[in-house]
């Protein structure tokens, strides 16, 4: 095939300029900090609380997505009902709707006078401007990941296997528990990890609904922006390096899971 030199050089130049150079700049800036300075910046009480909030709310949202994502995928693959293809299209809305718009509209819904906020306030539950609001926004953002990861695997399960299980006397629940669930699990974990990774770095949908109170509802990406606005470039960079490390670890995990998934389904990974 021709074009090796042309495509190689242009791709390398593009990736070097657009992807590698900015990340290199990030690490270069980190080197202007001494090690104790770096540690101090990434372990300040405000930073630690922001990690805790970011991590816990992302975990809660990804877990919700795992449960409801599996359910949505199951219903879409297994059942016939009017509006099925509309539901299938709607699942991708969080990918298509700008995150800031999701943040704006969710905030409007969940504030004290909002459509959902009012009845919830009557029950004594406040969502907007609390960690709960962050979980709501992150659940919105992460929904498609689990559905789209699980859907193809559910479709690929051969009916014969289930028939065999039921022929041997397994109940419907046992068939799900021992046959279907283990097959779907790697895909479910992949979707969970993708939703979690996306949630960790999410910013646009959260800034509106979280209220951004330092030490209370301040996620790490917001702390980076705040540091930057106060011209604390070194502090912002140190936090960014922490986030980048977590992102790469999660990326690695997704790759491992996908390799496992490829073994389950017998498909090659791109």
């Amino acid at each position: 095939m021709p074009g090796f030199r042309l495509t190689l050089i242009s791709t390398l130049v593009f990736v070097a300029l657009i992807v590698v150079l900015p990340l290199f700049g990030l690490f270069l800036k980190t080197t202007t900090l001494t090690f104790p300075q770096f540690i101090a910046a990434v372990t300040s009480p405000r930073a630690l609380l922001s990690y805790r909030l970011t991590f816990l709310s992302s975990f809660a949202a990804a877990s919700l997505n795992a449960v409801f994502g599996l359910l949505v995928a199951w219903v879409l693959v297994r059942y016939e009902f009017p509006g099925r293809s509309l539901v299938d299209a709607l699942v991708d809305l969080p990918f298509a709707l700008p995150t800031a718009i999701a943040g704006l509209t969710l905030t409007a819904l969940y504030t004290k006078d909002g459509l959902f906020g009012k009845p919830l306030a009557a029950l004594g539950i406040q969502v907007a401007f609390t960690p709960l609001g962050i979980v709501v926004a992150l659940t919105f953002i992460g929904l498609p990941f689990v559905v789209r990861a699980v859907q193809p695997i559910l479709e690929s399960i051969e009916p014969e296997i289930e028939e065999a299980a039921m022929g041997l006397g397994a109940s419907r629940f046992q068939t799900f528990r021992y046959i279907i669930f283990p097959t779907v699990l790697p895909a479910l974990l992949t979707g969970f990890t993708l939703a979690f990774a996306r949630a960790i770095g999410e910013y646009g949908s959260i800034v509106f609904i979280s209220g951004n109170m330092p030490m209370k509802t301040e996620i790490t990406p917001l702390l980076i922006v705040t540091s930057l606005e106060q011209y604390d470039y070194a502090g912002a960079t140190a936090l960014a390096v922490v986030m980048l490390t977590v992102s790469f670890a999660l990326l690695l995990l997704v790759n491992l899971l996908q390799r496992k998934l490829a073994r389950v389904t017998g498909n090659a990974v791109a």
């Binding site: 791709t11 390398l12 990736v15 992807v19 590698v20 150079l21 900015p22 990340l23 700049g25 990030l26 270069l28 800036k29 990774a197 960790i200 770095g201 999410e202 910013y203 646009g204 990406p221 917001l222 980076i224 922006v225 930057l228 470039y233 912002a236 960079t237 960014a240 986030m243 980048l244 992102s247 790469f248 999660l250 990326l251 790759n255 791109a270």
Partner: peptide, 29 residues
């Protein structure tokens, strides 16, 4: 190279913006 092309999906958008500030901003490289 495949991984690098995928990096922008896993990097927080805020971190991406910050790296451009660190390159091209007033105090940048």
């Amino acid at each position: 190279l495949v991984t690098l092309l995928d990096v922008p999906f896993s990097v927080s958008p805020v971190v991406a913006g910050l790296s451009f500030v660190l390159l091209f901003g007033r105090a940048g490289l």
